[in-house]
Simulated assay, not measured.
Amino acid sequence: MRVTRPMLALTGAVVALALTGCGSGGEGQGDGEGKVPATATGSLERLAAEVKCKPNVQTDADEIRQALCGNGDGKFVLATFATDRGQREWLNGAKDYGGYYLVGRKWVAVGQERTVTRLRSTLGGTLEEGSEHMNPGGSHNRGDHGGDGPHG
């Protein structure tokens, strides 16, 4: 089956919404924010093993491999990419739908903010946040909670 970019972005976006749309799960901001290890590399299975999850592969194509995962930190999507460009294109499309992303070289973990922050303590990587209009209460919006802002 030929997987197109719009299909990949839509798949990622649907999964991101499913995972991040249900409650924030608590504070947990300090968890995993201490020492950040060197960014992990490897196959989908190797990365999943690092965070102690058995991947349930949903997409297995030349350009992307994507799986649902869960461990003590929560549920998340783990995706690996054939190219850096493919990864960035996928991220650009998926981030329009909100969510929290832990980004490594040719891989991404997507889930609730608390979950990806905790995964970072094992996998390293960079935290990125999706579109502010799809992340109500996300860090983009934290300045508006006082009630004096335009959205209060």
Score class of each variant (00 low, 15 high):
120 R>L: 08
10 L>G: 03
20 T>W: 15
75 K>L: 12
23 G>C: 08
118 R>M: 09
72 G>Q: 10
109 A>Y: 06
96 D>S: 15
71 N>M: 06
62 D>V: 14
73 D>K: 15
134 M>A: 14
31 D>E: 11
45 E>Y: 08
38 A>D: 05
85 R>N: 08
35 K>W: 10
97 Y>W: 03
71 N>R: 14
123 L>Q: 14
11 T>H: 04
4 T>R: 06
50 E>P: 00
19 L>Y: 02
101 Y>L: 10
121 S>E: 13
70 G>A: 12
111 G>M: 10
101 Y>K: 13
54 K>C: 02
135 N>M: 13
122 T>P: 06
64 I>D: 08
134 M>T: 06
115 T>V: 09
59 T>L: 14
99 G>P: 10
79 A>S: 10
5 R>D: 10
88 R>P: 00
90 W>T: 03
25 G>T: 01
104 G>D: 06
68 L>E: 05
122 T>S: 11
88 R>M: 13
53 C>I: 06
33 E>T: 05
43 S>H: 02
92 N>M: 08
62 D>L: 14
62 D>F: 03
130 G>T: 05
60 D>Q: 04
14 V>H: 04
127 L>R: 13
36 V>Y: 01
54 K>T: 02
67 A>H: 10
4 T>C: 07
8 L>G: 09
120 R>P: 00
65 R>K: 02
20 T>P: 01
55 P>M: 14
116 V>A: 10
20 T>R: 15
74 G>N: 10
53 C>Y: 05
113 E>V: 15
133 H>M: 04
39 T>Q: 00
98 G>K: 02
44 L>P: 04
71 N>S: 14
55 P>V: 13
53 C>M: 05
11 T>D: 04
22 C>E: 04
9 A>E: 15
45 E>R: 12
57 V>F: 10
85 R>P: 01
54 K>S: 03
105 R>F: 06
6 P>D: 14
86 G>N: 11
18 A>Y: 10
17 L>P: 01
59 T>Y: 12
131 S>Y: 06
22 C>N: 09
73 D>R: 15
